[in-house]
Simulated scan of single mutants.
Amino acid sequence: MQLFEKKLRQTIDEQVQIKPWKESEKIPLYFLEFYKMYEITLLGVTFLLAKEVRSPASTNALKKHAIRLCSLTDLPVAFLFKSLSRYRMQSMLSNRIPFMLEDAQMFLPFLGINVKQPKECIQKVEKGKFSPSTQLAYLYFLYRENVEMNATRLAKELNVTTMTASRALQHLYEVELVQCRISGKTGRSKEYRKIEDPQFFKRGKEFLCSPVKQIVNVRHLPDTSLLAGLEALAQLTMINGPEYSIRAIGQDQFSYMQETIVRDEAMVKDMKLAELQIWAYDPLLFSVDGHVDPLSLYLSLMDVKDERVDIALEDMLRRQRWYTD
Rank of each mutant, 00 (worst) to 15 (best):
S91Y: 07
P98W: 14
S83L: 03
A66F: 00
M1E: 15
M267T: 14
Q105N: 15
T162I: 14
F130C: 11
M316N: 04
P98I: 14
T11E: 07
F200D: 14
Y256V: 06
V178R: 02
L80E: 00
L108Q: 05
P242Q: 09
L221H: 06
L49W: 01
L158T: 02
K127A: 03
E23Q: 03
E5I: 03
R318S: 13
D270M: 13
S85M: 12
I97T: 06
T324L: 10
F79V: 14
M149G: 10
R68N: 06
V216L: 09
M267W: 12
M100L: 07
D197N: 04
I97K: 11
V175H: 03
G128N: 07
I239T: 08
V160W: 10
Q2W: 15
E39N: 08
L230Y: 03
D310W: 12
I239V: 05
R318M: 15
F207T: 00
P242V: 00
E23I: 01
Q251T: 07
K190L: 02
M37S: 10
I67P: 01
H291F: 08
I18R: 12
F286S: 04
T59Q: 06
V292R: 00
N240F: 04
Y30L: 11
C70P: 00
E52T: 15
I27N: 14
M316D: 00
L295R: 10
L177A: 01
Y173Q: 09
T260I: 12
S24M: 09
Y244E: 05
L276C: 02
S133R: 13
L139I: 06
I40A: 09
M267G: 11
T224P: 08
E314A: 10
M100S: 07
F286Q: 01
K269I: 04
G241W: 00
D306S: 09
R86E: 13
R321Y: 01
T41I: 13
K129L: 14
M100N: 02
K119R: 13
P98K: 14
G187T: 08
E265M: 12
T237L: 01
E102Q: 10
Q117W: 10
S166L: 02
D252Y: 11
I40S: 10
I12V: 14
Y87R: 15
E191R: 09
